[in-house]
Amino acid sequence: MLNQKIKEVIQASNEELITLRRKLHAEPELSWEEVHTTEFVCNYLDQLGITYRRTEPTGVIAEIKGGKPGKTVALRGDMDALSVEELNKGLSYVSQEDGKMHACGHDAHTSMLMIAAKALNKVKDDLTGTVRLLFQPAEEVAQGAKAFVQQGAVQGVDNIFGIHIWSQMETGKVSCLPGPTFAAADLFTVTFKGKGGHGAMPHTSIDASVVASAFVMNVQPVISRMIDPQLAGVLTIGKMTVGTRFNVIAENAVLEGTVRCFDPETRDFIEQQLKHYAEQTAALYGATATVDYIHGTKAVINEEKTAKLVQQVAAQAFGEDVLYEEKPTMGAEDFSFYLSEVPGSFAVVGSGNPDKDTRWPHHHGRFNIDEDALSTGAELYAQYAWSYLNQ
């Protein structure tokens, strides 16, 4: 099923792959600002002679047409960085942009897809069908995939495959299980309005800080006591803005948070209960509450047939012992927008190596990857596309 030429090209391109990743790492760009990254990818595709089109405002969609007609498979790599200050000051390729960093591995995803494109282009005459390459912006704000879908990224696509580097997994291990893998992620804002007043005369006021505190302390039973414990959910309040001065009773309190789960019905139930708890808590103290609930990404749910093909390809390419069963994460991925349109799967490739200090969590200022994982990801991209089209 595998293509030996693909393996040879990627093995021969290992130094180039590392160089590409390090350049991207040193020059991070935030969501919707990936102008230079887009240009960098386009220049590389020009060198390979691969046709592409730019998307708005950033991003690239390219195609490699095989020598024989057939289906179309899409490969996705995201490109954006995060508003994180890099703490790996000893690296030769440390971020050159203050307050910006590739702290989630998107520099790896882009470089792996570039080298996969190189390998697939070498064997295009023997491909049965078309490979579409999605260099996607704005994953970190959960908007890029949706915008790509609207701009025709998966029009005519039969199947899609994506990869995420994963620091919690041993370098080179591959996990792609059927079913849920990344959670749905929603955002909410709860605004409590009380009655302000002097800190010395609380009886004349309605203290919004007390209302907000009571809500934070009491809303967690929605998760621990009201949903089926086998249908996991997370409700986190990450930000509270309350009050204006030490001796003024707060009139307003604004809370921001996120909800994570896999099951759509559980998602709807948590939303309903969140609003109920906010309104009832406010009423208890004579205040009012408004809840703004925004549905973000859906859960990433791997199609069984596609996930098993990924496992088969990984085992044939790297050996049976490379396969790993990583538990589903409450982290979110906007790859779910593609899976709402076409069948496919999303794999994680391990890059954690304690000897190289690459076990830091994603989004941390010390995040880095074991670059030995890059060739695994690049080959998995390319061999999957080859196998899907020529199976």
Rank of each mutant, 00 (worst) to 15 (best):
A315G: 13
D268A: 15
I163Y: 10
P69S: 10
L30V: 07
V41G: 09
F188S: 10
Q143A: 14
T258H: 09
C42H: 05
K173H: 13
R225K: 15
K68C: 09
V291T: 03
I64A: 14
G199I: 03
K65M: 09
V84T: 05
D46L: 11
G197H: 07
S31E: 03
V254N: 12
G90W: 03
T288E: 06
K100Q: 07
L87A: 09
V291R: 03
G129C: 02
S31A: 14
K173E: 09
N3Q: 12
I237R: 12
D107F: 07
E15P: 06
Q4T: 09
K118P: 02
T306W: 02
V248F: 15
G49D: 05
L45T: 01
I61T: 00
T128N: 09
W360H: 04
C176Q: 04
V216D: 12
Q316Y: 07
A232S: 15
K89L: 03
Y44S: 06
E85C: 03
K23E: 00
K298R: 09
G144M: 14
I6G: 14
P28F: 01
S340L: 12
L187S: 15
T297I: 08
A214S: 14
K356M: 07
W386F: 10
P137A: 10
Q4G: 12
L82S: 08
V349P: 00
G59W: 04
S336R: 11
Q143H: 12
V300G: 14
A185L: 13
E325K: 11
F182Q: 04
T288N: 08
P202I: 01
A26W: 02
A289Y: 00
A382N: 08
G129F: 05
V342L: 06
T130C: 06
L380W: 10
L87I: 00
S209A: 12
Q273S: 08
K124V: 01
T376S: 15
E56K: 03
L120R: 11
G243K: 14
A212Y: 10
V242A: 15
E251R: 10
I237C: 15
N247W: 10
V123R: 12
H36M: 10
V149E: 13
L30T: 05
H364N: 06
A385Y: 04
L17A: 04
F182A: 07
D125M: 02
D126Y: 05
T19N: 11
E325D: 14
H106M: 09
A145Q: 04
G377V: 07
Q47P: 01
H25D: 00
A108Y: 02
E34G: 08
A373Q: 07
A232V: 12
